[in-house]
Design a protein around this nucleic acid. Structure first.
Lengths: 112, 112
DNA sequence: GTATCATTCAACTAAATGGTTGAACAAGAA
DNA sequence: TTCTTGTTCAACCATTTAGTTGAATGATAC
């Protein structure tokens, strides 16, 4: 599988969970330690740590050790890249939207 | 869980697979029957049918029976909605980008 | 040093995912 | 009606996921 595909798989998979999207929003507002984040959810520390690892694998956040703490912060470069991918998807869809609407609202002849 | 969250979970999960993204691109170009799609991949008919069901659940495509065939087409409304969600994410990220970059490039004092 | 707090790691479970096969059903063609 | 093609459904399997607990490791404070 192409690297790009793995990247997109990881990114979309990371986004496909409410808790992880919430963590993303939280660290977007302010960087926080894993413990800070864990305290915000009714889930074990280990569970939250795993969610964070999924976000790290997707390159959406970074972990940086700062003394005793591991601080989680949004990864600006990756977030920018993610946006581009999402927009590229959106763009392709836009390009095809008119043509699609045309097909869909006119008589449907089998695509065979 | 809020309906909106389930919707986003389903949508991102559907996008988190290369085969499904490819199917999406294909039906974006031209609506096709399940059989047409299945023939395009080195995977069983049933496997592709399942992938399509995931896309249907995410409301990214529609299935419409047309005689013997079940025709799969991009769902324009949902694609529009999906775009909005993605853009909303992107927008939030953009809003915070400057502020984040500021935080990240300046001295990191613990968020505690 | 020891104690304490934050994190990581390993082992385990339950459920979901992605795939298979084969049987049953639906619809058009002969 | 029978035949053929397209789709659905059910059962099954292997892997991954999302969660748990508890032990081990890191880093600071005393």
């Amino acid at each position: 599988m192409v690297e790009q595909e793995i990247y997109l798989n990881n990114m979309f998979h990371a986004l496909a969970d409410s808790t992880r999207r919430d963590i993303l929003a939280r660290v977007g507002r302010m960087e926080q330690s894993i413990g800070d984040l864990a305290r915000a959810y009714s889930m074990s520390f280990a569970a939250i740590a795993k969610h964070i690892d999924v976000l790290v694998r997707a390159q959406l956040v970074r972990k940086q050790r700062r003394g005793k703490y591991q601080v989680v912060s949004l990864n600006p470069e990756a977030v920018g890249a993610a946006q581009e991918h999402l927009e590229r998807y959106a763009m392709n869809w836009n390009q095809r939207f008119d043509q699609l609407e045309h097909i869909l609202t006119s008589y449907h002849k089998p695509a065979l």
